[in-house]
Simulated assay, not measured.
Amino acid sequence: MNDVEIRKEIIETAVDMYRSGLVQGTGGNFSSRCEGGFIITPSGMAYELLAPGDLPKLSLGGEILEGSRTPSIESALHAAVYRMRPDVRAVAHTHSIYATAAASLRLPLPCLTDNQAVTFGGEIPVAQYAPIGTPELARNAAAALGSGAAVLMANHGALCVGENMRQAAERCAMLETFAKIFFIAASAGGGKALTKEEAEREAADMALRYGQK
Rank of each mutant, 00 (worst) to 15 (best):
E163Q: 12
S72M: 00
F30I: 07
E176Y: 00
A143G: 13
R69M: 09
E163W: 09
E66Y: 07
A173Y: 05
S31R: 03
Y18L: 14
G53H: 05
P110S: 08
A14Y: 04
G67P: 03
G148M: 03
S72E: 03
A144L: 08
E63L: 12
S20M: 14
Q167T: 07
E202G: 00
S59Y: 07
P125H: 06
A143M: 14
I39W: 01
S20F: 12
M165Q: 06
A185P: 07
I11L: 10
P52V: 06
E202F: 10
N115H: 14
I64R: 06
I97R: 05
A168S: 02
A141S: 12
L77Q: 06
P56R: 05
T195L: 13
E197N: 13
P131C: 09
P108F: 06
G44Y: 08
F38N: 04
P52K: 02
K8P: 02
G211Y: 12
D3F: 09
A188C: 15
T100C: 09
A188L: 15
G148Y: 02
T41A: 04
V161A: 01
C111F: 04
V126I: 11
G27K: 05
I97Q: 04
A173E: 11
R139S: 11
E170P: 02
V161T: 10
L60V: 06
A90S: 15
D205L: 15
Q212F: 15
C34G: 08
K192T: 15
A141D: 02
T134A: 09
K196C: 14
I73A: 08
E63P: 04
A149Y: 06
E48D: 14
T70Q: 13
L152D: 01
D16M: 12
V151S: 05
T177Q: 11
A207H: 13
I40Y: 02
V15L: 07
V161S: 00
G162K: 00
S59L: 03
D54L: 01
E48C: 12
I124F: 02
N155I: 05
T195M: 13
T100R: 04
K8Y: 08
R85Q: 11
A154F: 06
T41D: 00
S75K: 09
